[in-house]
């Protein structure tokens, strides 16, 4: 479904991603681990057309989407869910969700997706008229995920959903991701604060200094004491 060949990205003078090759199959949950500031977010953003200087090839369903504008990529069914949420602060929860379905491909299924989101996030629905800026960090994170689901995407690129959240929210997020995956969506996720996620992973990558240093199944990580300790704190 997603195939990245030798991706390089640059930000001002720095060379961020170095020859990164990744592949994600339809319906999989793929997790990217690795130390902070080594390019994991940049990779997700590059897929979604949010990084300017990129080089290499990103294929989505066989189509070359390298360097395509973000609105075109969203329209093809690929969505980025930001670590820092990027909500519309002076709009209500409901308005944020509706804008999540802005893209042409999402408009036809807005009702169905809204019903799905309501069943996944009943607490958000109770607060549908609240301004996004008045929500707590955990709630705002939930809203960011919910808004992403409204885009009707088949591939969700989720950036550190558990960062800075209480354990109860992390458990909730892992359940939600399980449910998203059960619905047939493909999930490419950067996250290392939620050990429960590893159980769902079909494939795990580790990124260090802008390159992929490890690729394997979940047992490869779980059976490797060093990796387990470094990245999962187990």
């Amino acid at each position: 479904m997603l195939k990245i060949n030798k991706l390089n990205t640059y930000y001002r003078e720095s060379h961020i991603l170095k020859d990164v090759s990744v592949s994600v199959d339809r319906g999989q949950v793929v997790i990217m681990l690795g130390p902070n500031g080594h390019g994991k977010s940049t990779l997700l953003k590059s897929i979604c057309g949010l990084v300017e200087k990129i080089d290499g090839q990103i294929l989505y369903d066989g189509q070359d989407i390298t360097g395509l504008a973000s609105d075109k990529i969203v329209n093809l069914g690929v969505t980025y869910i930001a670590e820092n949420r990027e909500l519309f602060p002076y709009m209500t929860v409901m308005e944020n969700l509706k804008l999540g379905a802005y893209s042409k491909n999402a408009r036809g299924n807005e009702k169905e997706n809204m019903a799905w989101v309501a069943s996944l996030f009943p607490k958000l629905m109770q607060r549908q008229n609240q301004l996004a800026s008045t929500m707590s960090g955990g709630e705002a994170k939930m809203l960011a995920i919910a808004r992403g689901l409204m885009s009707d995407a088949d591939l969700l690129c989720i950036d550190e959903p558990g960062l800075g959240l209480q354990p109860s929210y992390r458990v909730e997020i892992s359940q939600i991701i399980k449910e998203i995956s059960r619905q047939g969506k493909t999930v490419f996720i950067v996250e290392q604060n939620i050990p429960q996620l590893i159980e769902m992973a079909d494939k795990i990558y580790i990124m260090e200094e802008g390159g992929i240093s490890f690729e394997g199944g979940k047992y490869d990580v779980l059976n490797n004491e060093q990796l387990k300790e470094i990245f999962l704190g187990l």
């Binding site: 609105d71 980025y80 869910i81 930001a82 990027e86 519309f88 999540g100 893209s103």
Partner: peptide, 9 residues
């Protein structure tokens, strides 16, 4: 940035 993420041109 949020607008770009949801696909607003």
């Amino acid at each position: 940035a949020g607008a770009q993420i949801v696909g607003i041109p």
